[in-house]
């Protein structure tokens, strides 16, 4: 399950939905808005998503995690809109028979979501300025390299070896 929401994330409710009598481990990751980034004081964050593709890609990532790891349950929810310091921006939960696979799958899902799901954040700073993270900060001559989104659309549902 992957969802976008403009409402506060109900992590207790999401965790309850992972309950499975075959699972002895539940690992959850909560991504929170922090008050600083790269030496600047951050007042709040704004998340914007390309909804249709974000959900499609997020669901593919959760499916891939189920194929890649020995887990029983997996879910991820990402916020959109304006968030304050301490607000939860993303939640990932995984349940499995043993803890090892749940830890690995949870880390893989959040890492992969950050690389592939079309969601962006704009930081609003204490000095009244704001910028899109990773983009507007780009100095002339500084070249981003696109992330590992497969360019062959036929491979999008494949289990990624990388």
């Amino acid at each position: 399950m992957f969802r976008l929401t403009s409402e506060p994330i109900d992590s207790a409710g999401l965790r309850a939905a992972l309950e499975n009598p075959a699972c002895g481990a539940c690992v959850a990751f909560e991504g929170l808005v922090r008050n600083h980034n790269e030496g600047r004081t951050v007042l709040r964050l704004e998340y914007e998503a390309y909804g249709a593709l974000a959900v499609k890609e997020g669901e593919a990532i959760v499916r891939e995690a189920r194929a890649k790891f020995r887990i029983e349950e997996a879910a991820c929810v990402h916020r959109t809109g304006l968030l304050e310091i301490g607000d939860m921006a993303v939640w990932v939960g995984v349940a499995s028979a043993h803890r090892g696979e749940a830890f690995k799958a949870c880390a893989w899902i959040i890492d992969t979501v950050k690389q592939r799901v079309p969601i962006w954040k704009r930081e609003h700073y204490a000095d009244g300025t704001d910028q899109w993270v990773n983009c507007a900060a780009c100095a002339p001559g500084h070249e981003h390299v696109a992330g590992p989104i497969p360019n062959d659309p036929g491979s999008m549902d494949a289990d990624l070896g990388a």
Binding site: G31, A49, V90, V133, G147
Partner: peptide, 8 residues
């Protein structure tokens, strides 16, 4: 067109 993504 999708600029570098920055979720999480």
């Amino acid at each position: 067109f999708i600029p570098p993504v920055a979720g999480g």
